[in-house]
Simulated assay, not measured.
Amino acid sequence: MTKNDTDPPVPAWVIATIALGSLAALTAAAGAVLTALVSRSVVVPPRQSTQDVDILGVDTAAGTVSLRATADTLLPGRYSLWFDRDGGHARVGEIVSVAEGVVTRALLSIDFGDIERARTGRISGWFFLHPREFGFGFRDVVIDTPLGGAPAWLIPAEDPESTRWVIQVHGRAVRRSETLRATRVFRESGYTSLLVSYRNDGDAPRSPDGRFRLGDTEWEDVERALAYAVEHGATSVVLMGWSMGGATVLQLATRSPLAGIVAGIVLDSPVIDWHETLRYRSAQMRIPTPVQEAALATLSHGWGGIATGLEASVDLDRLDFVARSGDLEKKTLLLHSDDDGYVSSVSSRALAEMRPDIVTFVPFSVARHTKLWNYDPERWTDSIRSWLSAL
């Protein structure tokens, strides 16, 4: 059928309605795509770490490296500098100078890679790479998890007769080397350290869906590490969790039949409530509130698996230890910085206020996410040592 001169003109309101309908459809489609991206970003292990630091120059004679000024490059302390898509690793120390947006820092070591050719990298609190750096004994062991053998490092206490253990649980999208910073203080305090891996972290076996469950299932792997500790003589165990590892050990402490042997919990920059954490990160990324809420719903309902690839939904309510503060029974040391940048300290403070009977809160104001040891190792170490002594 073709239009001829006798056809009546299309009313303007019809054209406007069609245009608005098309715009609404496009907006809805864009919102659905953004929702899927937000929800997937939380549970899908990243293939590569974000290289968000510009490396502007290296002076090997002076032992310095110049970096573009960012919140992380301006932090005092000692840090890892990963470069070449994590194919290279160096360690940087205190700030030498800051001028016109350029931070010059001491270059402590170049462990591998060609940093002089590198143009981008990332700052990490994961400072040590392997337990052999400490000069005391360790063993490679394997934990028999529900998904298969997961590698771990076992570092004996100074006292061979000690039956106190600590199990270290790293955060999301990093590996067990993150937890090496705590090895010395626990060893000197009489603890054997077990530094574990868990499903989908790149060391331990992959789950069928290959997705993080934010602690809701990862705790089952750590429970097997707890059983390993008991089988090898542990009579008292401290759980220490970093970032998402904090959410994981909280699940273990409240869901495992083995939790009776847990004497206490140490949390560094922990996720206490994923609702608040995901809203905080989304707000930082300027994601609209409706999309934030849609992403939370996508993660916590079975139908969301179409977008996330999860075999089963994540029980975000079960992971909320502000709402579940009454379920926590273990003495807990909680260390968190108010300028964390990734996991807000709001929930940590709320938990500490609700459970002052068992939670000791040590706040930092300038340390960023899981970089408390790097920024102020003396205060961080003394806090743990004193808490262990009282425990």
Score class of each variant (00 low, 15 high):
M1P: 15
T2F: 15
T6V: 12
P9H: 14
P9D: 15
P11R: 06
A12Q: 10
V14Q: 12
I18W: 07
L20D: 04
L23C: 12
A25L: 15
A29M: 13
A36T: 12
V38T: 13
V43A: 00
P46I: 00
D54I: 10
A61N: 10
D84M: 14
D84C: 13
R91G: 11
V98N: 11
R105H: 07
A106H: 11
I115Q: 01
A118N: 09
G121N: 02
R122W: 07
R122N: 05
I123R: 01
G125A: 05
L129K: 14
E133R: 12
E133F: 12
F134L: 12
D140I: 06
T145Q: 06
P146H: 07
A150T: 05
R164Y: 08
A173E: 12
V174R: 02
R176A: 02
T179E: 07
T183L: 13
V185I: 15
E188M: 08
S193D: 14
S193Q: 12
R199G: 00
A204L: 01
R206C: 02
P208N: 11
L214E: 01
E220A: 07
R224P: 01
R224A: 04
A234Y: 03
T235A: 11
V237W: 10
V237D: 05
W242N: 05
W242E: 04
A247G: 13
L250D: 02
Q251D: 03
L258P: 02
V266E: 09
I272Q: 00
E276N: 13
E276F: 03
A283Q: 10
I287C: 02
I287W: 00
P290W: 02
V291M: 04
Q292S: 05
Q292G: 02
A294W: 01
A295G: 10
L296A: 08
A297N: 05
L299N: 03
S300V: 00
G302F: 07
I306E: 13
G309C: 00
L310Q: 06
D315I: 01
T332A: 00
G341S: 08
Y342Q: 13
S344I: 10
S345H: 15
V346D: 14
R349M: 11
A350H: 11
L351K: 13
L351I: 11
T360Q: 09
V366N: 13
T370E: 14
N374K: 10
Y375T: 15
P377N: 07
R379S: 15
R379V: 12
D382N: 15
L388K: 10
A390M: 10
